[in-house]
Design a protein around this nucleic acid. Structure first.
Lengths: 213, 213
DNA sequence: TAGATTGTTAATCGATTAACAATC
DNA sequence: TAGATTGTTAATCGATTAACAATC
């Protein structure tokens, strides 16, 4: 089952719903939730919640709402998070470290969090061999080899701008299907690879716009 | 001069243009740039480049293009980055550290980068007193006092989800005008404060959607 | 002048909201 | 049954692209 043509804007909200539902399941305070309440907690209008979910199926009951545990499981399935997803982080600067720690901690703590950090890479000989959680930072020279051997198809790129495009190219050749680029540079990938960009420095800079004089 | 009503989507692209122009100024390879080339380097269509810039004035010359140094300076002014902007980071976990290091390094290195990290806060007694660059992590108890004294109006929130709303509220009361929240939770602020949210775990989770089965 | 490229208006595209029949 | 809430269609809103007259 593939739901192509689903817009980015929709996909972007699914993990938000997932989080609200998972929280509700944990708290165990309610078995059912309306689009009204789900929207409120996620910061999205109720109509949009219903429309987003309707792209993937009919998960609710009229007059009743959505069963939280069921909808959470469906969202996990839709997001491919119902089974372990291996993930590599390339570039173990401060940001790479932060992302690695966060994901590792969460993978251990939350049974539902199935994003597993499977490999860490850096180009700096000083960093290679360093232990982070239960992993050792490897030389980026072994990038292709390890991605292929471990069947890693999701990669976080946190290298300097000057190296980003080359790393992306190499990940693509090694079979990556989804790449999240944190380097402050516009990079490209072939159509069949999903490439997203999160640029923290751009976020900081745009924020300054809203400081009135 | 205030250009209210400029959409978020437009403001979000300005730092992108700024980066391309600044790079061109540094390289010194061209004095002029067309919307075509600026767009190509930024990953934006030429028409959109022209439209975005036109919200703020007439910066180009027909048949010629934009003067890179001039347009860069105008963008710096529009983004309020033509003078030092003080910034506080609350929550010095791995992500807070990464952001602090990044901004501090860049402030030292790039003469045009005027986002100055002016204060660091954490609630953990273990971390308070720790040196990061030329700053010492302070107790979050002193948040209001320091923000007011140092006239800090831009704040990065990198605390755990459970503390985020309280920290945002306190920043608002202490005069913050622009807040960037990294905590994985939906928080709110009054109308007069600009609040943005960057959620790295949501980014990672949505990425998994694009891994085909 | 001739060619190029802006600034701007109109057309298109896409995403969100409103509304409501279906139905639990 | 009566009340509530979904799933879905139509209306609205906003952002991007296309086109071109103005003009350097």
């Amino acid at each position: 089952m593939r739901w192509n043509k689903i817009s980015d804007a929709v996909v972007r909200r699914l993990p938000l719903y997932l989080r609200v539902l998972d929280q509700a399941v944990r708290d165990g305070d309610k078995r059912l939730m309306s689009s009204q309440e789900l929207g409120e907690r996620a910061g999205v209008s109720p109509a949009l919640v219903r429309k987003d979910l309707a792209w993937f199926g009919e998960f609710g009951k009229q007059g009743v709402g959505y069963e939280v545990a069921y909808l959470r499981d469906e969202l996990l399935r839709i997001l491919n998070l119902d089974k372990v997803v291996n993930l590599a982080i390339v570039g173990m600067g401060a940001l790479g470290h932060a992302l690695a720690r966060y994901s590792m901690d969460r993978y251990q703590r939350d049974s539902y969090y199935q994003l597993r950090v499977a490999a860490l890479f850096d180009a700096d000989p000083e960093k290679i061999g360093e232990q982070v959680g239960n992993l050792v930072i490897q030389s980026v020279d072994r990038l292709e080899e390890v991605l292929e051997r471990e069947r890693i198809r999701m990669v976080v790129v946190a290298v300097p701008a000057s190296a980003a495009q080359e790393i992306v190219d190499r990940c693509v050749r090694a079979g990556a299907r989804a790449i999240l680029n944190f380097a402050p540079v516009h990079v490209t990938a072939p159509e069949h690879v999903y490439l997203a960009h999160t640029d923290l420095s751009l976020e900081l800079e745009r924020l300054a716009y809203y400081l009135e004089d």
